[in-house]
Design a protein around this nucleic acid. Structure first.
Lengths: 242, 242
DNA sequence: TCGACTTTGTGCAAGCCTTCACAAAGTCAT
DNA sequence: ATGACTTTGTGAAGGCTTGCACAAAGTCGA
């Protein structure tokens, strides 16, 4: 719009070429950057260099810069990035300028822990409904909200954009189906197992056992390469560098 | 070993060429396959084709076969995979033939939820210690274990291979440092923020806000491409395919 | 035994992601 | 103003991951 300048044939910059905009791998890191920026803002720091911010986020500075370049040019060469401006740009890209209404389904230990987790508000999300199918739980107050059934939520509850599934594994698929039928198209699943949903629905799954098993693989690999015969030895009596 | 056959110059198969063995992306999916195999085993099903197992795990069959090929040749052409044998091979690759001792640090809502989560035992992990720094909590019984301090654990506790951090964010780095000093080299971190650890320590981080923000990005993208003016409209009154 | 059929295992090509190297564009002291 | 210095933004190279196409290797009925 205000960009055409000179008649020279100009190559379309990489930041614009990609149809959907931002590569998936970058999207996965934007929240890390935002998280790293918040404490800087709170400390009153107004400017940060890519090298420094990258260290805080746990990535390399070139990767940070490449990622940010997909959002546009918000840095100043020789200076760095304006903390507040950059945070605002990332928040906008992630769609956090509004608050997304969230429902948590399944109020076992995990569901309750999520309900009382403080990291929602102020980060772009608000829990607006809690759901369980246990008649002993429905109707009770949890964290200031009255627990309802899924049917009630669909029928007369508030509009919800994101569903969090914290039910036992056997119930997860049925819950997902009902959430989708309600029009919800973003699901965060804490139940182990794969959810089948229509293409237009986004699902992210977090499974404790999976994470531990990936850790175990690397742990075993490390131990096998040293002392194949007794992989569990070496707790607190092992020498540690660093 | 029993493979040399004929004098023809033979290309080293891909499954052997890679030094460390299994590619990282494959390691991340092996737990999914194992998880999909368990119900089959429980149902008494003894054989499964890659197409079917892939559907259960939520991946493509060619990817499943490529992944499994890194473990060796455990399928039978024209038939499929023996459920029990394959499960055993994956479990061995992931290091799940033994039980890894786990400590949970931080017994807030999340820590307690994790402590009471059933998905540990029988999947290769056992919680052997619970740690908190609140004097009101230390010494109490939680899930059959007496809560201790980190210092006590290092001093006189059981050997631990994997540490799970479920503390508030400000405490996480200090806890990680102490776990590392104890010799723990695998950490699963639920606190938001990046942990700095020595190279030989493996860290995986799970952050609720990050996951939700990634979902929000895609949700926003979907909504913007349809009705840019009012992104939150369309809950239960939206027409849904599928 | 043979031929039709099924399903695995894998070389290869295409695409995505990361890293490198460096030009571009700013600040700052003089 | 100018030159030294800092730091961003990005083309291009390299590596990793995925998906395709198909040969290899088995089953099964006749």
């Amino acid at each position: 719009m205000s960009r055409l300048r000179g008649a020279r044939a100009e190559v379309v910059p990489e930041s614009v070429r990609r149809a959907g905009g931002v590569p998936e791998a970058t999207v996965g890191r934007l929240p890390l950057y935002l998280r790293a920026l918040t404490p800087l803002h709170d400390q009153g720091i107004t400017n940060v260099a890519s090298e420094e911010l990258a260290a805080l986020a746990g990535v390399r500075s070139t990767q940070l810069r490449k990622d940010l370049s997909h959002l546009g040019s918000y840095g100043v060469r020789g200076v760095g990035y304006d903390v507040d401006l950059l945070a605002a740009q990332i928040a906008q890209e992630l769609g956090l300028t509004q608050e997304w209404p969230v429902v948590i389904v399944g109020l076992g230990n995990l569901g309750r822990a999520l309900a009382s987790y403080g990291g929602f508000s102020g980060r772009g999300f608000r829990i607006v409904a809690l759901v369980d199918d246990d008649p002993a739980v429905v109707g009770t107050q949890v964290e200031g909200l009255t627990v309802t059934t899924l049917a009630d939520l669909a029928d007369s509850g508030p509009t919800v954009a994101i569903g969090v599934i914290a039910t036992p594994a056997p119930a997860a698929q049925a819950v997902a189906d009902q959430l989708v039928a309600m029009g919800i198209r973003s699901i965060l699943n804490f139940a182990p197992g794969h959810l089948t949903v229509p293409d237009e629905v986004g699902v992210r799954s977090v499974d404790l056992a999976t994470e531990l098993q990936i850790l175990a693989f690397h742990e075993q690999r490390r131990l096998l390469s040293v002392s194949p015969e007794d992989p569990l030895r070496g707790g607190r009596d092992r020498e540690v560098a660093g």
